[in-house]
Design a protein around this nucleic acid. Structure first.
Lengths: 165, 165
DNA sequence: CGCTAGGGATAGGGTTCG
DNA sequence: TCGAACCCTATCCCTAGC
């Protein structure tokens, strides 16, 4: 079929994130008309941008309840080896704590990727959101934001290698 | 866990088909809220309707000749992890073929889809709507409608082969 | 009217179960 | 192994409020 559903490419997603960093979340039309992103996002509408950004954040926050549910679910159909189910929970929990504590502490160091497919929040998303919040809240100076962006980009490069994409 | 897996009865399936003929494929919530079918389908959700309709069509397609998609899938049981941090823009946005056809509006008000939206009309929808039109215009008897359905299903099979790839 | 936020519906992939 | 039923969630749609 043609394209009943236009899946977002990694490039488009990156452009969206960059646009949010530049203009702020909620300025969808502004992002679209920015020539810097229009070349990549010209197939998307402002509503599309809004929806995608919402989805990105939802998946990043992912935790609390469904986590337990899925962990349980994964555990049941696998009665083979009694692999320590607590290990998985612990790892996820640690990720969440990172977010809660202070997301701005961007450690360029390696964060071991566990199962790269399951309920692990994507760190790049988390970091990005933290920065966005920071910008909107305090209106911190552009210099530090720019620096953060640099850090993010290199960090993203590392993660891309490890993650599914 | 309490999941007895409720099989679809012939009556439910008939109601679903009638609902699709009346409101069109994809209008599952509409079908569900229609009092004509709600009495029969009230145990089902809109998602259930969608899934069942898909199953019906899938089994019908297997009547023609198509296994390419599945065969392809079997050929890649071990998806390689192509770690290339620089190859972000290797998107395949290849096929954009457009089946441009006017949406034979029956009840909906929108006659002209704007260009910003993807003007891709799904063939099955078009055919179904055509039949719905036929039904409303001539009030053709159920027998011929059933025959049309058969025709549609085989026709869909052919199209899928050409389009899906 | 255009825009955004939010809720809700749909499409399609994935999973479970018989 | 296979298909029917069911789950998950990215994308799309609709509408209220500005």
């Amino acid at each position: 079929m043609g394209a009943p559903k236009q899946k977002w490419t990694a490039e488009e997603e990156a452009a969206l994130k960059a646009g949010v960093l530049k203009h702020g979340a909620g300025k969808w039309r502004t992002i679209l008309t920015d020539p810097e992103f229009n070349s990549i996002l010209h197939l998307r509408s402002n509503v599309d941008l809004k929806d995608k950004w919402r989805n990105i954040n939802v998946t990043a926050i992912w935790g609390s309840r469904q986590k337990a549910k899925l962990a349980l679910k994964r555990n049941l159909p696998n009665p083979k080896h009694d692999n320590n189910p607590l290990a998985v929970s612990t790892v996820i929990q640690s990720h969440e704590e990172i977010v809660d504590a202070k997301p701005l502490a961007i450690s360029g160091g390696k964060l071991q990727t566990t199962e790269s497919k399951q309920p692990i929040a994507r760190l790049d998303h988390l970091i990005l959101k933290a920065i966005t919040n920071l910008k909107e809240l305090g209106g911190s100076d552009r210099a530090s934001i720019a620096m953060y962006i640099e850090t993010i980009e290199s960090t993203l490069g590392e993660f891309r290698v490890c993650e599914v994409f």
